[in-house]
Design a protein around this nucleic acid. Structure first.
Lengths: 199, 199
DNA sequence: GTCTATACCAAGATAGAC
DNA sequence: GTCTATCTTGGTATAGAC
């Protein structure tokens, strides 16, 4: 848990969210994590790209689990995704509008430069979409419709981060969450009654 | 038009889209534009940040005009935004998935570092949202609803770029465009008949 | 308004002792 | 597994002739 490797990943995650991938130096990571550059290369022989992939993989899993926890705690299937939008907005304001997600930033910076990083980002976001899809199909929505809503949800959140941070106003995430929720409600309402597990 | 200043902005725009803001060096810009670093600092005394702001402002205007052209040419008010999603998907595939928009990337990289760049990005995206809002209010949608749909449209496009480039598959933009269009159709259908200008 | 040359510093990465 | 020291390259920015 508190291993050196974990400390390096955690520090990198925070720095990437603040300064981006290319905007963060290994010297900063070394200082913030308390590990020397020698240690960093010990755990990540491929250097910064290896480290970036580890950050993306770790964050991808954590956010998928976070979605499942929030959606599972929602009062009904329709509100699960909405609660995520609201939670993201709150996080942004509490953290002085630091990027909640290093993955989207890294993906945009290096999608045309590093294949390992691009693929790791795609895998992470696909795992979120899978989770939303599963959440909605459990409420009776058919698979294609559920997946399209999952893709829109992830896109709207990632794009919402750009808008919210630029404006220094997170309320757009709440409004977009409301819009996406309208579509989700329609899809759940259209589902065969026999497969619905809630309202 | 073909002035040195314009060549510097154009070259920077393309490089930022490929490698990001921090991932692009002034030496690269110098080589791609044919202008020396001395020339670059002559036109942009504030250095890279000044140049970035100019790129964001220029691109912001061009894309706003492009939206108005596409939406104006649509067969009906409901399809204007959809056509933009489809056009963005086509552009991505034609350009080997280079980022269509330097603004979103720059915003995520430096929103917590450079206030001038952050504000320029916010202004650019707000101008797009204003344009979508005007497009929808002209079809009879009330202002708040139109603006929320404009925000969702821009968020879904910007977030869609992240997903599409990571996957190297642009089809998600078409699907998200369909979802957003459902909401737009509902809003236009709900508009008072006296204010509607089309179907 | 454009050029060459360069100052100055930070980047990623590595070597090798411990 | 961790450390210090350093190599090499590239970064932004500037100086000053033309």
């Amino acid at each position: 848990m508190g291993s050196t490797r974990d400390k390096i990943i955690t520090a990198s995650n925070e720095l990437f969210r603040r300064y981006g991938y290319n905007g963060t130096s290994l010297a900063q990571i070394s200082e913030a994590s308390g590990a020397t550059t020698g240690s960093i290369y010990h755990f990540f022989p491929g250097g910064k790209v290896d480290l970036g992939v580890a950050v993306v993989n770790t964050t991808g899993s954590i956010y998928r689990e976070l979605f499942e926890a929030i959606a599972g705690a929602a009062e009904n299937p329709v509100n699960g995704v909405y609660d995520v939008f609201v939670g993201a907005a709150a996080t942004l304001e509490e953290t002085d509008f630091i990027d909640p997600c290093p993955i989207g930033t890294i993906a945009r910076e290096v999608a045309n430069v590093s294949d390992p990083l691009r693929r790791a980002a795609a895998d992470a976001m696909n795992s979120w979409i899978d989770a939303v899809t599963a959440h909605l199909t459990a409420a009776g929505v058919d698979d294609d419709a559920a997946r399209a809503l999952g893709e829109l949800s992830v896109s709207a959140i990632e794009g919402g981060f750009v808008l919210a941070r630029s404006r220094r106003d997170a309320s757009v995430l709440v409004r977009s969450g409301e819009q996406v929720t309208k579509l989700i409600r329609d899809a759940v309402d259209a589902a065969p009654l026999t497969q619905r597990s809630g309202t």
